[in-house]
Design a protein around this nucleic acid. Structure first.
Lengths: 218, 218
DNA sequence: AGAAAAAGTTTCCAATACGAAAAATAATTG
DNA sequence: CAATTATTTTTCGTATTGGAAACTTTTTCT
């Protein structure tokens, strides 16, 4: 069901420090002239990563969607003027058009994460699905967590970190354990908001694993 | 004539550690889409820095010189295909076309420094003119030095550094002072070669300042 | 599954880039 | 300083790009 090399995993007691995606982000070499750079493929990757349709991209850049389509399909070689429009409209730097796209700043962007399509991050106590991982430097880190933990002992110690946290129970029933407070049961639909520097934990109190939405300030 | 804040200058006793050009190299921000990037101006800078004519560049890149001319003069917006040819032919990375050019590797290149057009570097003892500063990572560092110094005392201590040194007297007469050796007078046309880790100095022994060509291994 | 909407591709023509050669400048040389 | 050569710019025909709209494919909704 979940990871069994318990000891080493216990250090990581379900808390998320940084989005793994930021650390994992593949390091691409900067483009050398020898490589067969496919500007079309790259542009498409950028556009789809932004979750823009050709029409959206057209509106942003002022370049006809037909042109965009042809560029993406390597049917034409865009002029530098077009490259500039693309860069400006998509708010990227031109050299970015020659390297595989990475995460993007959140400003002016959106990132839709479909059910189950988020980035998985497993611990012994929780099964996290990170949301909106395409965007970096976000003010909030949203993720869904399936709660395997059943008791304080499953963690070993309180979870503590900077910032504040909000959670909403999506499925099942959980107990919110909070330092200095009495445990509190939260049913589906209930939510909580708390200072994350105060020790806190969530354990499932129903038979099934509970599912919660979690949002942490970064 | 030369710098007068003597004390701080004495530390720098005429020896050249690195080409100042490498340290001085202006730090340009990477291009943001907002800036009005002038690909023509940049291309021209690169080409002239390589000391290539339009025809040379045309041969290297396979792009017609007329096209190159028009690009440089911003009369046309080159297609991406052309940008690729330029990058490949000039052996640069495409993003380089969007930033002010810096020094270039020496491989396959040449750099002519016209009389007096080298990069000036003044000390209390010498007046250096660095040569071939367009190229980086050179095996040899050539420079001309006008010798102001007249005695060992003008330095304070031996000059020492890794590598070997060759010098040729271009004008005037100098004394080559070398650790473990007797001083030796060198007239115009005379030359010397020595291990630079051994203390060494050159002082002018004629009435006028002497001029020498100096080449150091790096 | 069929209709409607959305997204992507292709067509066609005007606008523009590309290259060869001619014309104009700039640099050299006697 | 005129003549020559080297270098850059302009001209002009051809090839290619870029955009509006038509068309096709994919997705969504009932």
């Amino acid at each position: 069901m979940f990871n069994t090399n318990a000891r080493s995993d216990m250090k990581d007691n379900g808390n998320i420090d940084v989005y793994p995606s930021e650390a994992v982000a593949q390091q691409e070499d900067s483009f050398t002239a020898e490589d067969p750079v496919n500007i079309g493929k790259i542009l498409k990757k950028i556009r789809t990563q932004y979750q823009l349709t050709l029409e959206d991209a057209s509106k942003r850049t002022g370049v006809a969607k037909s042109t965009l389509s042809k560029i993406e399909n390597e049917q034409i070689s865009p002029t530098f003027a077009i490259l500039q429009k693309l860069a400006k409209g998509l708010d990227i730097e031109i050299p970015q058009l020659f390297v595989e796209p990475k995460q993007q700043q959140a400003t002016g962007r959106r990132d839709i994460t479909e059910q189950g399509k988020g980035q998985q991050h497993l611990t012994t106590t929780y099964e996290h699905e990170l949301l909106a991982t395409q965007l970096s430097s976000k003010k909030m880190l949203p993720y869904k967590s399936r709660v395997h933990a059943r008791s304080f002992e499953d963690f070993g110690d309180w979870v503590r970190h900077d910032g504040e946290e909000f959670l909403l129970v999506l499925e099942g029933e959980v107990q919110l354990l909070t330092e200095f407070y009495q445990p509190r049961t939260l049913k589906t639909g209930d939510s909580a908001y708390y200072d994350a520097s105060m020790g806190h934990l969530v354990v499932s109190s129903s038979k099934e694993d509970a599912l919660i939405l979690w949002i942490t300030t970064s």
